[in-house]
Design a protein around this nucleic acid. Structure first.
Lengths: 149, 149
DNA sequence: GGTCTACTTTACGTTAACGTAAACCTGATC
DNA sequence: GATCAGGTTTACGTTAACGTAAAGTAGACC
């Protein structure tokens, strides 16, 4: 499942600019994923943590990226697609005209997909409404029957 | 990707009750999937076509189920989850109280997931807005520069 | 009756997204 | 200085959702 109501894990915002850093374990706990997952996302080019000696140090930028990544996943995007969006996000203002136009094309695609998703959700919600009301009805029927019997 | 703007393939509705049937190939073309995919969905318990001799015959019920399945996939649900919903859909009114209550629980879960998705889409759309405006800005900058040079 | 075309089963291959296990390093603590 | 928690790399394993190829069948047409 698109990972239902995520515990809305979020970092404490000490003032406007929280300059704190995270170990991989901290970040993992914060978003309820495993360290392995975080390393894998790095390997796939979604994160680029600092290195202090051998160990990774994550900054707010990485935390935001990870958040975006998990949001994308909940919507069924692949990691490759999410990386695409992240690169758009980071390199939007530079590049030549052809690149910029290509970006706008990709953006239009993502938008269309999300529009489709909105529509899909709308329809599915109605269908769930339907099932639920039928469920409630038979439940009440059972209850009435028990009251009589 | 959640399969962007699907060509909104849909069957002709000859009157209210279209009693026509479909071969696997027809159904596949209608929704732009392969026959293999349709057989796989059957194997996973999502479809139950009639058999005429060896070959499968699909009715409107199957078409609706397939449509629901693809909608679920666009939202990132797994086939197992979709099967769960389909079974809810088909067996909502029967079963004892415990089963009905369990159904309502599952329904609540799906609802929560979809609420989360709505929120995710809202946020992502804003982020895409941001990227796009930055894109447009640098594009205009390039154009102005060219006009001068 | 041969030849298409579209169906069928069986079975192995593939890709994405991690899980899991082994073997190692490293700073803190008893 | 041993131990331990938490970090690291390397590498193989696993699951979902199909793709693909081989080999057979069954009706339509020339």
């Amino acid at each position: 499942m698109p990972d239902a109501p995520q515990p809305v894990a979020e970092a404490p915002q000490e003032g406007a600019r929280s300059r704190r850093t995270y170990t991989i374990g901290e970040l993992a706990k914060l978003f309820e994923v495993t360290p392995r997952t975080i390393r894998f996302y790095e390997q796939e080019g979604l994160l680029e943590p600092e290195r202090r000696g051998q160990t990774r140090i994550y900054h707010d930028k990485d935390r935001v990226r990870l958040k975006l990544t998990l949001r994308g996943k909940r919507l069924g995007f692949s990691l490759a697609e999410i990386r695409e969006v992240i690169q758009l996000y980071d390199h939007a203002p530079d590049g030549d005209e052809r690149q910029l136009r290509r970006m706008l094309d990709i953006l239009a695609d993502k938008r269309a997909a999300m529009q489709q998703q909105l529509e899909d959700i709308r329809i599915l919600q109605h269908e769930l409404d339907d099932v639920e009301s039928r469920c409630q009805a038979s439940l009440q029927a059972l209850t009435r029957q028990r009251a009589k019997g």
